[in-house]
Amino acid sequence: MSEQTILDMCCGSRMFWFDKQDTRAVFSDIRAEEHTLCDGRHLVISPDLLADFRALPFADNTFPVVVFDPPHLERVGEDAWMGKKYGRLNKDTWRDDLRAGFSEAFRVLWPHGVLIFKWNETQIPVSQVLALTDVKPIIGQRTGKNDKTHWIIFVKD
């Protein structure tokens, strides 16, 4: 097994990973569950480590790379497949939750480490989310249907 140098702090079903079993990564999520989606596909959320991104169980300066792809929906039905696939934000605490997530991501990053942040602004504009951290991003790219998904790179000072 190779050294684990990447933390995916909200891995979900590892949708964007080329190798969903990449041994360089620690896949972490607050939930472990399986669902059959409305189209018959099987959704598996099986993290290596059950952990809350607001309170990560790692020492300071542990990883050179962190991936932060938190839930982005605050309005989604309890049984909706979008909620099962992407998770859901707490409508009352999402700002505090994401602020704590950014803080934890930067805490566990090495100095000059890279944070890869993904956000879909279908419900909440990315500008409101970026306001939750004092660290300024260095690179950003919009993708997806209607350019609503943002991939944003930060470097820890």
Rank of each mutant, 00 (worst) to 15 (best):
S2Y: 01
T5D: 09
C11P: 05
C11E: 01
R14E: 13
R14A: 08
R14G: 09
M15H: 14
M15T: 15
F18S: 13
D19A: 06
Q21I: 10
T23Y: 05
T23E: 15
R24V: 11
D29P: 01
E33M: 10
T36W: 04
L37K: 06
H42N: 10
L43N: 02
L43Q: 04
V44E: 12
V44W: 05
I45N: 07
P47C: 02
L49K: 04
L49G: 10
L50I: 15
L50N: 12
L50M: 13
D52W: 08
D52L: 03
D52G: 07
F53L: 05
R54N: 07
A55N: 12
A55G: 05
A55E: 11
L56K: 03
P57H: 12
A59G: 12
T62W: 03
T62M: 01
P64W: 11
P64G: 13
P64L: 10
F68W: 05
P70K: 01
P70F: 00
H72D: 07
L73K: 03
L73S: 03
E74H: 04
R75T: 04
V76Q: 09
G77S: 11
G77L: 07
D79H: 08
G83H: 00
Y86I: 08
Y86F: 15
L89D: 02
L89S: 03
T93E: 13
T93M: 07
R95M: 10
F102L: 08
S103W: 01
F106I: 11
F106D: 11
F106V: 10
R107P: 03
W110C: 13
W110R: 12
W110I: 09
P111T: 12
P111E: 14
H112Y: 14
H112D: 15
G113I: 01
V114A: 10
L115I: 06
I116D: 06
F117Y: 04
K118T: 15
W119Y: 00
W119H: 05
T122Q: 03
Q123M: 10
I124R: 01
V126S: 02
Q128K: 02
L132A: 09
L132R: 02
L132Q: 05
T133V: 05
D134G: 03
D134L: 08
V135Y: 07
P137S: 13
I139A: 13
G140Q: 11
Q141H: 10
R142Y: 12
R142M: 10
T143P: 06
G144K: 01
K145M: 14
D147V: 03
W151N: 01
F154E: 01
F154A: 00
V155N: 02
K156H: 14
D157T: 13
D157R: 06
